[in-house]
Design a protein around this nucleic acid. Structure first.
Lengths: 302, 302
DNA sequence: CGGCCAATTGAAGGTGGTCAACCTGAGTGG
DNA sequence: CCACTCAGGTTGACCACCTTCAATTGGCCG
């Protein structure tokens, strides 16, 4: 039997272990998501979703010291160039993209604060795609051996890195499903749902609203559409009052409808964390509350 | 400057370390790709592309003992069900797929002999997609802790697993680019190119020809198209004499043109192996020979 | 022979692309 | 203060790629 949503029944509240609380209604400045270590979204994510201990976190935090600042359209990693450093995105939005010979571009991964830009660099010399910023960014460049050392020394770090890779994988697979099967409207709705989830985890969304600093052209490159069509579909979503935009601010007016349109199921983001270590459930139960109208009644596969 | 193809200039031949030779012109039975250990495509791949040593290989081989046989449409892993075992595909074709609520299906990963079906299972309890066979398959089901133990004990094994994950990631990203940017014809051509590469590595292709046991419907689910359209595009590729099909056998008649149509660059498959450990270059230089006509003249990005 | 699945082919229709024009707001320089 | 520029958003008309629906063929196996 297929489990549509994580069975939120019963006592789904786990021990809280002093993790960051990230209720969406929480209206604080977006730069203070975690209670200690200033605002390092990378650490926030690990603390929230993995078993990683304080010593390891401290070691990772040290690696993030002295981040470099980049402008809005900087190239962090060139396609095919060997890299001796990994890049951890601490603030701003970036992307991994592939360029086709004739100039067509596909953004394969949208990188948000807390994401590692080039995890594959741990195993692969020449990355097969380029990393570029989409907004001004703060990026920690940590040496490959340094991270590998940590991973060798601590099973927790190794597992955390593996988990990050697995989640990235799952997100790519889900986007495949979007690109291959969903209509433009479904896909865009799905995209906005995913952003809400991911930004919430790192404390960059509140009240179903977040800053969306992307041009319609960038969104087009993510969704495999044209900017013209993005424009039209956004218009439709606004017209049906699912979302509202004021400048860069995007507000989701009707979460239930939006995710029903999208066919959005957050399972693939693995918000339950590594080995179920995550506390996002307790912190943000609204994420998993079943939509008022069942999204896929009697759905099963055999 | 962008590097179109791996610079095959000069002495690209590495020490051969007794690895399997996989020249494409080699016309032997498809079940005897590696010289020892019978035909275990999983080991073949690791031996060919990673630094992994004989003791580790032997340990992995032990895990593959007593594979189970499955029929042509068996479900190996159900979406959302927790799994305590990983599945290594030893023979036959399978896939990971996502089902949308209304029945639309996207095959996110095509699994060939030698692939691990559910690598994410190392880090994630409930897989977010299902694994099913597409042909009769031989599958080794190895316990999660057993593999994890090996990885903890041996850095080489850990690296090999990480590398496999990174390659999977890159393949997903490339498919994203196909789904989002390429036309049906480009995408299908690309798909056939990729299959040739991957099958060659595990000794299941020869003379630019391999067995393609997929229905057009399955291909449609991979490429995000309809089976009707797959049929038409295949027809076109045959008409322009790029490929030829005789039953399940697919032969690539014009490799140069096919990959030019596809815009296929094998970089993302990382045939150079973990840390450049691979010998595929020496064994199958044709893979990387530049097409007679440059595919993307003067292509660069800045 | 009959049944079934997959491949094949045709006709019609829709989603999303292409091309082009225009608008808006921010920044810049006179 | 206004003219100018430029990037990004918006809108319209037209068209093509791919889908949908449907019918037919071919191969395999009971």
């Amino acid at each position: 039997m297929h489990q549509q949503y994580r069975s939120s029944g019963g006592t789904s509240i786990r021990s809280t272990r002093g993790k960051a609380d990230i209720r969406p209604g929480d209206r604080r400045e977006s730069r203070s998501a975690s209670e200690d270590g200033g605002d390092n979204p990378f650490l926030t994510r690990l603390r929230l979703l993995t078993d990683i201990g304080d010593t390891d976190l401290a070691a990772l935090e040290r690696l993030c010291a002295n981040p470099r600042q980049f402008g809005g359209r900087a190239e962090l990693v060139a396609d095919g160039e060997p890299q001796e450093r990994l890049h951890i995105l601490l603030d701003g939005w970036a992307c991994r993209s592939r360029l086709l010979a004739d100039g067509r571009r596909q953004i394969t991964t949208l990188l948000l604060p807390g994401d590692i830009c080039d995890l594959d660099g741990l195993y692969v010399r020449n990355s097969d795609c380029s990393v570029a910023t989409l907004t001004p960014c703060s990026v920690a460049a940590v040496s490959r051996p340094a991270i590998q050392d940590l991973a060798v020394r601590s099973r927790d770090v190794a597992d955390a890195l593996g988990w990050l890779g697995a989640v990235e994988n799952a997100m790519l697979a889900e986007r495949n499903a979007c690109l291959g099967q969903r209509s433009a409207e479904e896909h865009l709705a799905h995209f906005l749902c995913e952003l809400l989830m991911r930004l919430t985890v790192v404390g960059r969304a509140s009240d179903f609203s977040y800053t969306l600093p992307l041009t319609q052209e960038a969104m087009a490159d993510v969704l495999g559409l044209t900017s013209v069509h993005i424009n039209r579909v956004l218009h439709r979503l606004r017209a049906s009052e699912l979302i509202e935009q004021r400048g860069n601010q995007l507000e989701i007016r009707d979460w239930d409808s939006l995710r029903r349109v999208a066919g959005f199921r957050p399972d693939y983001l693995h918000l339950e964390g590594l080995n179920g270590a995550g506390d996002v459930f307790a912190a943000a139960p609204w994420i998993f509350a079943a939509p008022s109208q069942p999204m896929a009644p009697g759905f099963s596969h055999a």
